Each structure stands twice: as C-alpha cells, then as structure tokens.
Simulated scan of single mutants.
Amino acid sequence: MIVLRPFDPDRDTGLVHDWLTRPYAHFWDMLDATPQQVRDGYVAMAADPHQDAWIGERDGRAVLLAETYDPAHGELAGHYDTQDGDLGMHFLTAPPVGPPEHGFTRAVIRAVMAHCFAAPEVLRVVVEPDVRNAAVHALNEAVGFRALGEVQLHDKRALLSVCTRADFEAAVEGVPA
C-alpha cells in the first residue's frame, strides 16, 4: 500500500532532486536544477496556501512525488472554466530499484488519485501534462481522465484533462490495487 505524507524540504530535497534530474523526468524541466533550487521551489510551495507537495511511501521507501494545487489560483485559471471542487495534480514516480515491477506506475497514480479524492470537497482532479507525454496520457486515461483539449501554457503545450470522482471510481472498480 502506498501512503502519502507532506513533503519535508529538509528530509526530501536530496531524494527528489535525484529523481527530477534523471532523464526520465525531462517533462518536469528540471534536469539542470541544483539541490538548492529544488529546495527553494518546495519551500515556496509550502508557503503558498494554494499548493502542496507530497511524498508517497510504500514499505517505508519513498516511491513518488505528488503536487496538488488549486487551478483557480494559477496559470490554468485562464485556460478553462475552473469549478469549485477542482484540484490540480502532478506526479512523478521514483526511479526503479531492482527489477521492473509490472503495474507499479498504475499503482502510483491510483494512490495519488485516491489521496486527492479523500478530501470530500474535491469533485474533479485536473491535469495538464505535456502533449508529447504519451505514457502519462495512457495512465491518466486508465484512472478515468477525459481530455478537454490542448492548451498553451508558459512552458509547454499541454493536454488539459479532468477526472471526476465517479469516473475514477468506475475506472478502478474491480481492478486490483
């Protein structure tokens, strides 16, 4: 089982810096970030009442980074009709340790989505991955996201997608965790 806890800049910066600067994380645009830049970013996020960062752990080992935010208070506000109950989300899976584990990334996104919907006020989760990130589009679809269309953000062309609580529940119903 994957459990999410708040990101702790003192504890987690080094680990997350390692993840963000690996080639597989290129869509995060932080390949050249220093540890201090990563720390400063997450300290700033912690000070912003509209954003949060999370570390997901399984069996005591960090396996994911997630960020949640209120889309009405960020760049997305000008690109779609935000609604009360919307929660924006980003996630990054930790690099593998040992042999690849079939279904692991799906378990990660499922845990992140369950975390998002654990808050009763969250009615939809909103994502805006790079349009070129086919792997994450497939994962998003697998947990119930529906594409609204492409939007041009300051740093990328993104596929704006939403997932309602009902869409998520229907997508994972009967699928082993």
Rank of each mutant, 00 (worst) to 15 (best):
R61T: 11
Q83H: 13
A94C: 10
L64A: 15
D52H: 10
G78C: 07
Y80G: 07
A47N: 13
F91L: 15
G98L: 02
A62N: 05
A66Q: 04
Y69R: 02
P99K: 15
P96I: 05
L65S: 06
L64T: 10
L87T: 01
E101H: 15
P71T: 04
D70Y: 05
A72Y: 02
A77D: 15
G78E: 06
Y69A: 01
E75S: 05
G98A: 09
H102T: 13
T105E: 12
V97D: 15
F104Y: 09
P49V: 09
H79T: 09
W54I: 04
A94Y: 07
P99Y: 08
A46H: 07
F104R: 13
P96K: 04
E75W: 04
A72K: 09
A94M: 09
H50W: 15
P96A: 12
G85C: 08
L76R: 04
R61C: 03
R61W: 00
A46S: 14
G103Y: 00
L64E: 05
D70L: 12
Q83G: 10
G56C: 10
A94N: 07
P71M: 01
L65Q: 06
L87P: 01
P71I: 06
L87N: 01
T82S: 15
W54F: 11
P95T: 11
D81Q: 13
P99E: 15
G74H: 08
P100C: 13
F104M: 11
L65D: 05
G103I: 08
A62Y: 04
P49N: 08
A107W: 03
Y80F: 14
E67I: 03
P100S: 11
T82D: 10
L87D: 01
G78K: 00
H102M: 00
A47G: 15
G60N: 14
H79A: 12
D81I: 00
T68R: 03
M89T: 03
G56Y: 05
G88I: 04
E57Q: 10
H73K: 08
A62D: 10
G85D: 09
G60P: 12
I55S: 02
E101F: 00
G85K: 03
D70K: 08
P100A: 15
P99V: 13
L76T: 06
D84V: 12
P71E: 08
G78I: 11
D59C: 09
